[in-house]
């Protein structure tokens, strides 16, 4: 048996990470909770995951408090593998209507705005629209009230009342508005594709 790859799961202190950890273990990765920048340097991680729990402002404030903002930016700029989920995707942009006045990581151009959906929060399964064959076939699970409507880095869209960005990709960064860890086998395939 080969040794399992270690994945750094950033502790945003904004919600329950049980599902994400369970999913990463099911696909034979070893998730390690990372609470600050020092912990990130102490081990050899093959990838970083920013989890999708909590609100934009809480996540950004907690990252700043624990010197993780710069650590994430450095990780990204060094071209290391990084995955964001839900709010963990949204923080890569500049700001969010969920918490006005709090700046995101601003590594990508764009704003997170309220999703103009028939029911809020959006809860449920939705098809991805994508030109990439890998994503086009997928039906995945969303839980959100906010979304990015336009991004240069879009690789998949979804629609609930209006179209929004479901996945982005640039360099070593891949991020999802949906929750691959709750999206059945197809979700596991999505995470495997970017983490293994």
């Amino acid at each position: 048996m080969t040794e399992q790859k270690k994945v750094a799961v950033i502790d945003t202190k904004a919600g329950n990470l049980f599902s994400l950890f369970a999913c990463l273990r099911r696909i034979d990765l070893e998730p390690v909770l990372v609470k600050n920048s020092t912990e990130l340097e102490q081990q050899d991680f093959s990838a970083m995951v920013i989890p999708g729990q909590g609100r934009f402002g809480t996540v950004m404030n907690n990252l700043r408090k624990n010197q993780l903002e710069q650590a994430i930016k450095d990780w990204y700029l060094q071209g290391k593998n990084i995955v964001g989920i839900c709010v963990g995707m949204q923080i890569f942009f500049e700001s969010s209507e969920e918490d006005d006045g709090i700046q995101g990581l601003s590594l990508l151009a764009g704003k997170v705005t309220r999703l103009n959906s028939p029911k809020q929060p959006m809860v449920g399964w939705c098809d991805l629209k994508s030109e990439l064959a890998f994503y086009k076939q997928k039906t995945v699970y969303f839980v959100n009230s906010f979304a990015v409507k336009e991004s240069q880095q879009v690789i998949a869209n979804a629609e609930y009342g209006e179209e929004f960005v479901a996945a982005i990709q640039i360099g070593s960064l891949t991020a999802f508005q949906f929750h691959p860890e709750k999206s059945g086998q197809q979700g596991e395939e999505v995470l495997k594709q970017c983490l293994i």
Partner: peptide
């Protein structure tokens, strides 16, 4: 189909 979201069983 309601604007894209699938009814759940």
């Amino acid at each position: 189909i309601k604007n894209g979201l699938k009814p759940r069983v």
